[in-house]
Design a protein around this nucleic acid. Structure first.
Lengths: 352, 352
DNA sequence: TTGAAAGCGCTAACAA
DNA sequence: TTGTTAGCGCTTTCAA
């Protein structure tokens, strides 16, 4: 291996001490311009890049932001991380990404590795549970922000799941639907529970009888549904004595599964609204109505909050802030299909 | 901040020297089982997690794999990174991700930061150019693997773009198409050029006159096309004196743009094949035929190659290996629509 | 404005 | 099998 120049080589080349080189690298002001430019020249010529490990070791905090999410294979999280990365780059920070697969133990392991092992300058995570006692030790030294799901102990950036779902289900009811399926009711902590509450709230308000047959539960104990599972489920729903006339997909994975399954079952004309921006939603027949939650906006808000916390350390001890990113219902057609009880008093013209 | 225990605390708690703790942590064999379990107990009790920075500094290589890709917002790359992350986790390695936005300077900056700054244990990157002289200094000390695009100097994991495209275009021709549009012809180095070659090859072989009007060039100088740009382009194509009867989407972004634009233009029945697994391809009408390139397979192959290189350092000096991951043409309907010159001698039954 | 010295937490070399 | 010592490359004192 060719020698990677260190701070000493730069110091020697520019005729100053290593401390002065350090000052230049860290942008400290107390360096004479002439000295500074001499050092800069040496840095460029030698191609000097400071060793991150040594910096972390000495200074106590690493030059990276840790990100812990469910999975990068989920387009929502991928876009979220992408937004964070862009901003972090501007701050000269790297990102180290870890996924949990929604596993609580893996979450703890990854968070601790990031905080204690990598001495991350900050951590953004999508909490799998709402109890993280082991994080308390790091609160005061490291900014920690939760995303996608609110957290009792940390600042968080979320969307208003309850309200968004209430709006969506409300529109379906207004358009004459009474049999509305909810797919799916995840058992774990998180956004899905609040979406489910929004669903139940509308049913109650509208005097619609709740039917557990219309809810797809996560009976699998944690593993994700496959496309085939959704086909099975859609077939089950349409075999009911009184099948649903509208579907609500509580997350994007469910939406994708349902769209595919509906298509297979030649039921694509069924009313449906999805939580999350389904890719190519506009190109289906009918086009898919979605609750729009912008992962870029969420990611940006999270990293901004993190950077703000970094400059005002004490603040983290205050009551956690919950930043709610607005959502909107994008009416593309599938959510505006009329149901059997429609009295032509509301809703847009259906597409099919 | 509560004290994060260091190796010294563990040593004190278990009554051994720090070196013995180090041995246990690193799984060295020369430790008596009794001692080992005593140390293990202390580690668990104190919640000791080794400081990555100190380890990197001393040992010379960091505990992370660096990944440099175009963008995490691209589902292909997100899935690729996800596959790498899973495997890295099993090796006790973190991943630090950086994106280039296809910018050569940013690529260099990020690669050097990973290699020189973070002392990454290995680097996987999607090369933006085929010339990386500055990486030569790291070849022998750090395994480097290229993905998605072949590289003259490094082992790479790619798909056979030429062959896959040849098959796809060949099928369109066999099904009676003569006017086949190629969207889009990216100017930069990479897979798109080879796909374009496959396109030209079939035209030549089939005696079809090449028409530059049917090729969407990247005239923008690097910025990505928006959905609106695709709408404009589709409208232009169908305004030609002899419009195309089939479309080839050379990458997934183009496919998504085209599907949306075709839908808007009420031309969804146009024959089309996309390079890459379009999400929900099966749920469109007609279902989208795709060249299937598995990002998980590519990511897995890349990390496996990286880990193999890590254990046999000298090997990297050999001639670079190009590992070709097979693709397949998934015939879902859109690519099997007959063209005007079809003579009922080949192809599947069209869907529409 | 600049520099000398100390040492961050760990691992490699060598001793015992 | 275990321990001692010496740094890795940088930033943080503190002094000049």
């Amino acid at each position: 291996m060719v020698g990677r120049p260190g701070i000493k080589e730069v110091a020697a080349a520019s005729g100053v001490s290593i401390k002065t080189v350090s000052r230049v690298v860290n942008g400290e002001s107390s360096v004479r311009p002439a000295t500074r430019s001499r050092v800069r020249a040496a840095i460029d010529e030698l191609g000097y890049i400071p060793n991150t490990a040594a910096r972390s070791l000495k200074s106590g905090t690493g030059r990276v932001i840790g990100i812990v999410i469910d999975s990068l294979a989920d387009p929502f999280f991928a876009a979220l991380v992408s937004a964070i990365e862009r901003r972090a780059l501007g701050e000269g920070l790297g990102i180290v990404v870890a996924s949990t697969g929604q596993d609580v133990d893996r979450e703890r392991e990854q968070l601790l590795l990031l905080l204690s092992g990598h001495r991350a300058a900050g951590v953004i995570f999508a909490p799998v549970t709402d109890s993280h006692p082991y994080l308390q030790a790091y609160r005061e030294s490291t900014p920690i922000v939760a995303v996608d799901r609110a957290h009792p102990d940390f600042d968080s950036v979320v969307v208003d799941d309850f309200e968004a779902t209430r709006t969506a289900i409300g529109q379906l009811v207004n358009n004459g639907h009474r049999r509305i399926a909810f797919l799916y009711r995840e058992q774990r902590y998180g956004a899905i529970s609040r979406r489910y509450s929004g669903y139940l709230w509308v049913l109650t308000e509208s005097g619609i009888l709740f039917d557990p047959e219309l809810v797809l539960y996560d009976r699998s104990g944690g593993h994700d549904f496959t496309d085939e599972d959704y086909v099975t489920e859609i077939n089950r729903l349409f075999s009911l004595a009184t099948p649903p006339t509208a579907l609500f997909a509580a997350n994007m994975r469910a939406a994708v599964g349902i769209i595919g399954a509906l298509h297979q079952a030649r039921r694509a004309g069924t009313a449906m609204i999805a939580f999350g921006n389904v890719p190519l939603a506009g190109a289906f027949t009918p086009a898919i109505s979605c609750i729009n939650q912008d992962p870029y906006a969420i990611g940006n808000a999270a990293i901004e909050r993190l950077l703000a916390l970094r400059s005002t350390p004490g603040e983290s001890r205050e009551k956690p802030r919950e930043l709610v990113i607005p959502t909107s219902l994008i009416r593309r057609g599938s959510g505006e299909i009329f149901g059997p009880y429609h009295s032509s008093r509301s809703g847009e013209k259906p597409t099919s």
